[in-house]
Amino acid sequence: MRKTIIALTILSIMLLSVSMAAVDSDGDAASQYRWTDRTLYHATCVAKTSASTEDTEWVYPIGMDGSMKEYIENPKTAKQPDQGLSHVVAGQTYEVYFFDISGTFDMTKRDMALESDPIKLYVEPQSVGKLTVNSFTVFTKTNAVSMPAYLLREMSESWGGSPSLHFIGDVANLNYREGTYYTIDMQGSMTALFYEMDADVVIKTFTGSPYLYIGICIVITALVAVTIAVCGRRPKFD
């Protein structure tokens, strides 16, 4: 009798636990991303002094900035622009592209050359994202640097970002949270015209229910409970 009560109690708890639920279907994508995290400006400037150019400046003779213009037209697909002049001569006029202008140039007017395009990954409700970054390359003025790690930052208008460090090849969870999105930054600081990332992003959207598995759990638990109850019963002798 005692064992029967235990079996019934276990069954009751299992049955009471069943409530609303839902199920899954997957969608995935492997993507290449290229983006900047700061706004690039352009100006036609006169060099005040003869000097070397800074890492934050891409300097071309007048009319020779075609590769940069091509990149600005289509930053997602165009090739990396050439690195430009490494020295300027005082009094000469140049096409200068910069994040922060140095004191070498006399600048009168600047144009926005390339608006910052931070990568944003949104996760829809009832979804979970899996991000695997296969490569992360930072293109500086002089070379391309492969980064072994990157920062995944969960952004929210109300509470800002909370970064977490991930390594290349890691699988990072992208959780849905209302009003938030994810950005990816490089680890450390470096002035780069753009970043390039080869990543697999798998967004799993769940639309089903776990009723089947709850049912299986109930049946198996019930069978075991009944077996215990039957085997634990005292034998009756006639």
Binding site: D24, T207, G208
Partner: peptide, 10 residues
């Protein structure tokens, strides 16, 4: 089930 209503059945 107290918090979530979506599951990955696979």
């Amino acid at each position: 089930l107290i918090t979530y209503s979506f599951f990955d059945e696979e």
